[in-house]
Nucleic acid binder design. Structure first.
Length: 419
RNA sequence: GGCAGGUUGCCCGAGUGGCCAAAGGGAUCUGACUGUAAAUCAGACGGCUCAGCCUACGCAGGUUCGAACCCUGCACCUGCCA
């Protein structure tokens, strides 16, 4: 069987690691305990976090025991980022997000069995910590000159950084130390942007307890243009269906660039590498079929939202983007597809125009933008380009007497039900 | 506390009394080409009851026929000095 570290490397999931041979040996010797942390900075995790969850899952499948940490305390402090000081959220908000994220994260791992995952919250060991103990036991191990040299910190020295955020690295390091002591945790994984925080923890454990532990970082996932992956035009790709519908989630994957889709298959799915190679061969032959994108979207959407939601998203995509004439679709199929894609109810009595509908569905931000879209030839009703901004959605335009498929550009689709 | 500089549309950034809804770049959107891909080219890119009107250049007030641009006060940011 392939060594889990080889699998991670082959999938392009290893950007940095501490002593790789030592880590390899330790992973081979028997089950180890490792951890990955998630800070509650929003009510939901996003696909950047998903990569970390899936990496943790891969290690669990190899027999190791995951500790999934939710940052009840670190979320109150805020990891410094280059953009500038974070706005602090209230304790109530953070506590709420902690619960949401804990339940989100637990769906991706096994909680039972010998190597069942444990969800931990760092608030448990920091809430009651006295300032004096913190400064004596933890602070003493952190030379400020070294802290200042860290990239994020030095980049913030001009614009300013609060003592609160400056201290963040101590809390995360303390987490690793605590989990090492409580659970024998010897590996922390995370994104490469966390590398500094993670190795600071490794260092703390060496200084405080004299133990050698490991760190493993995944690379920053980027889009073809080099920008950070995980954002669409409309924002972050969330895992919570309340924040992003399974249909929209599916769409965000199906729109993956040709040059990136195979990488994503390796990083975000559990497909065997030889299977991915087969998909790649097909993709190289006929990229126009977008088979790799379809496979990617189906696999990841199933992981996050389940088979049923994925089937619905696929059906909607096929119906709305397919070659079939919309008129030929049975009403039930059309209605289901449009509800899935996001549909809005309008009143026939209001004589809604194409402009009104574009705004109501959110395809356009304002009436001006909607008029502009029509003027540019970028607005379509039932796949027919519309040129008159005053066109009223009524009569023969409506499929089965009430439905209209509204499209702006080539990939933004929304439904309208007029009654 | 003193001195100097700054605060412009989603972001960066020009503009220093009328020709400014505001140069240029980025991001974004649309079209052509296409495959719900990329690249390229072209156009758009505050709002509205849209050939006109309204709102906008940190906030409040003032000067002026007219202010993003001048004056006063306030807030915040940066640098230098204490």
């Amino acid at each position: 069987m392939t060594h889990v570290l080889d699998d991670l490397e082959a999938r392009g999931l290893v950007a940095h690691s501490t002593d790789r041979d030592a880590l390899r040996a330790e992973l081979s010797e028997g089950p180890i305990t490792y951890y990955v942390g998630f800070d509650p900075t929003a009510p939901s995790l996003h696909i950047g976090n998903l990569l970390q969850i899936l990496t943790a899952r891969r290690l669990q499948l190899a027999g190791h025991k995951p500790l999934l940490l939710v940052g009840g305390s670190t979320g109150l402090i805020g990891d410094p980022k280059e953009a500038g000081e974070r706005v602090m959220n209230t304790k109530e908000t953070v506590a709420d997000w902690v619960n949401r994220i804990a339940s989100q994260v637990s769906r991706f791992v096994d909680l039972d069995g010998a190597n069942g995952a444990t969800i931990v919250n760092n608030l448990d060991w920091t809430a009651g910590l006295s300032t004096i103990d913190y400064l004596r036991d933890i602070g003493k191990h952190f030379p400020v000159n070294r802290m200042l040299a860290r990239d994020v910190v030095s980049s913030r020295l001009e614009s300013g950084i609060s003592y609160t955020e400056f201290s963040y690295v101590l809390l995360q390091s303390m987490d690793y130390l605590e989990l090492h002591r409580r659970h024998g945790c010897v590996l922390q994984t995370g994104g490469s942007d966390q590398w500094g925080n993670i190795t600071a923890g490794v260092e703390l454990i060496r200084r405080a307890d004299g133990d050698k532990v490991h760190a493993l970082a995944t690379p920053l996932i980027t889009k073809a243009d080099g920008t950070k992956f995980g954002k669409t035009e409309s924002g972050t790709v969330w895992l919570d269906p309340e924040l992003m519908s399974p249909y929209a989630f599916y769409q965000s994957w199906i729109q993956a660039e040709d040059s990136k889709v195979v990488e994503y298959l390796r990083q975000f799915t559990f497909l065997e590498l030889h299977e991915i190679a087969r998909v790649e061969a097909e993709h190289v032959q006929k990229p126009g079929l977008r088979a790799a994108q379809r496979r990617l979207a189906a696999e990841v959407t199933t992981l996050v939202h389940g088979a049923e939601e994925t089937a619905a998203a696929e059906l909607a995509a096929r119906a709305l983007f397919g070659r079939a004439e919309l008129e030929d679709l049975p009403e039930a199929t059309l209605a289901a597809a449009l509800r899935e894609a996001g549909a809005v109810d309008l009143l026939a009595a209001d004589q809604p125009t194409i402009v009104d509908a574009l705004v109501a569905t959110g395809l356009a931000d304002s009436k001006s933008a909607a008029r502009r879209a029509v003027g540019e030839g970028g607005a379509y009703v039932n796949n027919e380009r519309v040129t008159d901004p005053e066109l009223v959605l009524a009569g023969d335009l409506l499929l089965h007497g009430s439905w209209a498929v509204l499209r702006k550009g080539k990939r933004s689709i929304s439904g309208v039900s007029v009654s």
